[in-house]
């Protein structure tokens, strides 16, 4: 907040991004009435939740940490973190928030509230709980994916695209999951890059169907992905070499 001009530019950009997402789906629904059985207001709730989760990742993980990781590794600039008696993975990937992103969650919450009010459908307390549980699992999976991709920076020198790659993959979470319901796409987005658990499945649990299989799968994948990422990180960080004398 010290640099007010920059802060307002960052905020403007984040709001423009949200505006672009809404506009995009407005254009889609200007041409069709439903997408794989999802109405505009259901998609609006999905976009809102996706914005909240995405901005959380941008604000806590990406801007001040993962985005800069390949360059910091190349410059041998992570020594100060390694000598601290703290977990290196959490210390190198989690940061103080990028304020503009945290504020940008507000329109996401608004879209969720607006979408919900227009759907006009009673939702049970249990469905809300399941939806929150799956969202937490989705965030865990998303964190594991982002950190997993970024940790490859220890192998590929100055590969600045790696953190971006994880963020780009998360964008698949903005589509309703039935669009990935066939063949290879289903395998890819349900099991390999399960970004459908970030927003689409939680939205579906609220308004479309209570599918116990999704809940079990979400919890299992969260545990599995986190375990793999911790293992991957601890192996790859051994390749780091300091640049100082």
């Amino acid at each position: 907040m010290i640099y007010r001009t920059s802060f307002f530019i960052e905020l403007l950009v984040e709001i423009l991004y949200i505006g672009w997402l809404i506009f995009y789906f407005k254009v889609v629904f200007g041409n069709v009435s439903t997408v794989s059985g999802w109405t505009f207001h259901e998609v609006l709730f999905l976009i809102g939740l996706n914005i909240v989760v995405f901005e959380f990742f941008v604000g806590i993980l990406y801007v001040w940490r993962l985005r800069l990781l390949p360059e910091r590794i190349k410059n041998g600039d992570v020594d100060t973190i390694l000598v601290k008696p703290l977990n290196t993975m959490f210390n190198l990937t989690l940061s103080s928030p990028y304020v503009a992103s945290i504020i940008s969650m507000i329109p996401g919450f608004y879209l969720m509230a607006y979408g919900w009010s227009q759907i006009n459908q009673p939702v049970s307390f249990m469905n809300i709980l399941w939806s929150i549980l799956v969202t937490i699992c989705g965030i865990t999976i998303g964190y594991a994916l982002l950190v997993g991709f970024s940790s490859l920076s220890f192998v590929f020198t100055n590969a600045k695209f790696l953190p971006d790659l994880g963020m780009d993959l998360l964008e698949y979470g903005q589509n309703p999951h039935p669009v990935y319901s066939t063949g290879l796409l289903r395998f890819a987005f349900y099991f390999v890059f399960p970004v459908i658990f970030l927003a689409s499945i939680p939205t579906s649990l609220l308004f479309k169907e209570t599918n116990g299989w999704f809940i079990v799968l979400a919890v299992s994948l969260a545990v599995l992905f986190m375990t793999i990422t911790i293992e991957l990180w601890s192996r790859l960080i051994k390749r780091y070499s300091s640049a100082s004398s």
Binding site: A159, F161, L165, Q174
Partner: peptide, 18 residues
Amino acid sequence: YRSNLIGLIIKEMIGMGV
């Protein structure tokens, strides 16, 4: 830094795929 080019291609493909 050829790996950045591979990254660019994958990034563009992902964006197109969404």
